[in-house]
Design a protein around this nucleic acid. Sequence first.
DNA 1: AAGGTAGGTGAGAATCGTTGTCAAATTGGC
DNA 2: GCCAATTTGACAACGATTCTCACCTACCTT
Lengths: 146, 146
Amino acid sequence: MTSTDRVPGSVSEHGPGATAVRPTRQRRAVAAALEAFDDFRSAQEIHALLRDRGESVGLSTVYRTLQTLADADEIDSLRTETGESIYRRCSGTHHHHLVCRSCGATVEVEGPTVERWTSAIAGEHGYTDVSHTLELFGTCRACAGR
Amino acid sequence: MTSTDRVPGSVSEHGPGATAVRPTRQRRAVAAALEAFDDFRSAQEIHALLRDRGESVGLSTVYRTLQTLADADEIDSLRTETGESIYRRCSGTHHHHLVCRSCGATVEVEGPTVERWTSAIAGEHGYTDVSHTLELFGTCRACAGR
DNA sequence: AAGGTAGGTGAGAATCGTTGTCAAATTGGC
DNA sequence: GCCAATTTGACAACGATTCTCACCTACCTT
């Protein structure tokens, strides 16, 4: 690898010797697909959407790209109750989700209270380097009306 | 199905006419296995333990039994970051877990603060019938020392 | 522009946890 | 002991995800 520094397109990783990430057609397509939704979607759904749009991208690539984006915190990912991973574009700041069980409508919520609580609890028990998962599932107003 | 109504499913349910779940050798073995651990274990690990102990129980049965127990809230279940289901005996009251990423040591924690917060948030956004998942992962003191 | 090369792609195979199938075995009530 | 409902377990089937690997492409160097 050469020594010239480069600032690659989308995934925010940089500095000398950092892995280069190339802005390929496929990556742009996946990113665009995420913009088209505003609720959580699975890799397979995104793959299907792209195929229907005529911008077909290999399933492996969709998985890879979503993972890369999620690792870089450029999108949110979470697991449904059935263990499936779903993804969504996100706001960048740390937050959690309130997801409608029936229609998928999602609200991003912030929880300074919870953040404080988790680190307090962790410290209390001598745990370090703590991360947490917190998701709320419920029925939104619209869906409750039926 | 006969005419008498019976309470389906619930594991520790008894009394007249309510015997849908039988205390078989296999179920006792799975329950005993859970007592032997105090951290979370996967169905496969429990299946392996039983096999090694010479109390072999079919894998399907282990899965079924764990699910039944979890549905009846007699054991805790949660999903690891990789989507695998893991189980553990539990205290019965609502609580969350602080799990060591490296050795699996688990602390049950209660969070009245969090419970209040979640219902407040949910109400604020008009969501009803809300459930939540909250798990903490970290490195316990013992593991941090290496 | 040409060439080299590290990174990226995708079709299909492989994995892995989990669930379904169904005949045989067990259980509890009579 | 007999019977019917329940349970079991070997095995197949499944679905999501990851791996493989030959081919492709973006991007740097010349």
